[in-house]
Nucleic acid binder design. Structure first.
Lengths: 356, 356
DNA sequence: AAGTTGCATGTAATCGATTACATAGGGTGA
DNA sequence: TCACCCTATGTAATCGATTACATGCAACTT
């Protein structure tokens, strides 16, 4: 159960064991390196006997092909870059898991870049892909990256297969995996309206965010469908974080006339908001209904349990990874996949009339 | 702002641009490839004029060194493997961010392996390190991995620098970055006891988990320090997940004599547990106090706000990454780093006498 | 002035696999 | 029996950088 990591304590520095190379396997199996390579890559182009000898030699030596050499020659790294804006966000980490799973099954490794709002990092990872360090990339950040120095000679713009996940990339011709944010937001808004809410507040995501734009449109769609007017005063700026929800709550608490329902575009914000309302002595949902977006794990155990929109996060990750793998292996890939969302009715939303 | 990923739409297949190689740069700068390489790796071993010409040529061509070639020759990948048991867990993702940050600054990339309890994956990633795909690894999973087939000839046991994060690896001689789980658990237990709690339940982590063992010992230490007896009936099995907390809550609700306080070894469990108690009509903390462990983001906005033990997660990640980088660059690395934890007093714990 | 030192640079070996091309031998058809 | 083809295998070029070693030249020492 333990093997690796014994460091070089026991043996003298010189005796440090070197990894077996294809040469060593070839010699041991009494074949050429070409045969070893073929025995692994295209087994049916090698005689059964030779193959058996090779496999035995591989087992004996513990040979593992050197990926650097392999990749140098074959121009394939079997690595995929995943670019995301915030690694510490629950929402993304569940998606990541779906991605990792699928990539792993297909024999690909995953390199993660947490962009962290830093353009410097963005440039770095652009170079990263350009250097051929990965075969493809999944972007969760809503835009392509790259150092566009058009002035200079001819910047190396290598293109590798890309997939956009969650946040569509406007104008880019890459497969998009997403949910229908607009429709989902509209549906939730109509749900609130159907319960009798007429003053519905909206806590937004970051202003220039594509998700946010879609959801905001959906919110307006929903109001319109329900015959309600849009009131800009009921739009509260946010950025998907718990803190933003807390701030939005403070804003609401301070108002003389309050909405009867609040639609938060992330569960984090909804939970932060409920917390603040609660501290101020307001009851959810009796005094004010709160709806979220995403259906993170904590939504179900929030107090009260959060009514929200379920996003199939793991499946999103899997779908994105599959699409990328299709691309990488030269298969046709779907241009756009829209996974279904679902309203999850819990306890944080009720009719405005039913005062407890 | 967009550059990469234009795919090969415009130009015909054949014209696909190939990345600039060191040769191209050398020709353009009218120097040898060796000089180009040196201009990048050891700038002061190259004349200022040559260096300038090289840099200009690099800018013109957009040259980025091919990592496969580089790594093949120099046996360095500038990649670090991070092995963790569950990527989708909030606790880990914050740590990951700390790791990524620090690695990035030092020029290292991060490859993630979500073990997901699968031994198959474990073996795969053992081979991964053996193949020299990464320069070092950070292990969050509490044990070394590796295919120890002692029987066979001489299995390739390559050793790369390792660092154990959070979960110490028993018997392994690698730097450990951790918090003092035992002391922290003891402190929390004593805190509860000092408020007057005499029947304190303990919701555990997974049975064979090292963290769990430490915390459990700490729990017993705390009881002993407070002069309280240890009652096995008050130990409820868990596994750090929200669901485990829910189950533990159901267990408690069903009991005739209940503890006055519950110490959960993760915030997730504490939140799930409070949820269940609440549904059953019990009040926290009036009827029962609940304490957590970790201080995840949601602890502060739970209802009631959770009293817990703060772990400096980002700093843990940073410290681990720094230690590994020290190792990788041949500097001495601290054998063990223990970061301080802190009890965060919020609203979920109170004295058992103060019935609301 | 001859010898020594040291810097800037070039030449070419090297890392470890993949794979185009060459070749030997066995089988088949005429 | 000969020509041909197909299969299994080997030989060696190749991927793109790093770096040991060699070289040429200038400056400095005595």
């Amino acid at each position: 159960m333990d093997d690796l990591g014994q460091a070089d304590r026991a043996e003298p520095e010189e005796t440090r064991i070197r990894a077996a190379r294809i040469q060593d396997v070839a010699r041991l199996a009494d074949v050429s390196t070409a045969t070893v390579s073929r025995a692994l890559a295209t087994p049916d182009r090698v005689s059964p006997e030779a193959r058996a000898r090779v496999l035995e030699a591989i087992a004996k030596t513990g040979y593992v092909p050197n990926p650097a050499a392999r990749s140098l020659r074959s121009q394939k790294t079997f690595m995929v870059l995943v670019v995301l804006p915030d690694l510490s966000n629950t929402f993304f980490s569940k998606i990541l898991r779906g991605i990792e799973e699928t990539l792993f099954e297909a024999g690909y490794g995953m390199i993660i870049s947490d962009l962290d709002g830093s353009p410097e990092k963005e440039a770095h990872f652009a170079a990263f892909t350009a250097a051929g360090r990965v075969d493809g990339a999944i972007l969760l950040n809503g835009h392509l990256f790259g150092q566009s120095r058009e002035g200079e000679g001819q910047p190396a713009r290598i293109s590798i297969p890309l997939v956009a996940l969650c946040e569509a990339i406007p104008g880019a011709d890459v497969p998009q995996i997403e949910i229908d944010n607009r429709a989902a937001a509209s549906r939730m808004t109509q749900h609130l309206a159907s319960l009798g809410h007429r003053r519905i507040a909206y806590v937004s995501g970051p202003a220039n965010n594509i998700l946010e734009r879609e959801r905001f449109l959906g919110f307006k769609d929903g109001l319109e469908a329900a015959g309600l007017p849009f009131d800009p005063a009921l739009v509260i700026p946010g950025d998907y974080t718990i803190e933003a929800g807390v701030r939005a709550g403070q804003d609401l608490v301070g108002r003389s006339t309050r909405p009867t329902a609040v639609f938060c575009t992330s569960d984090e914000m909804a939970i932060g908001l409920m917390r603040t309302l609660f501290s101020a002595g307001l009851r959810v949902p009796e005094d004010i209904s709160v709806a979220g977006f995403d259906d993170i794990e904590f939504a179900a155990v929030a107090e009260p349990a959060l009514t929200t929109i379920h996003q199939p996060r793991r499946e999103l990750g899997q779908a994105a990874a599959s699409a990328l793998i299709d691309l990488l292996q030269g298969r046709p890939s779907p241009k756009r996949i829209r996974l279904e969302t679902e309203i999850v009715i819990r306890d944080s939303v009720t009719s405005p009339w039913r005062k407890s």
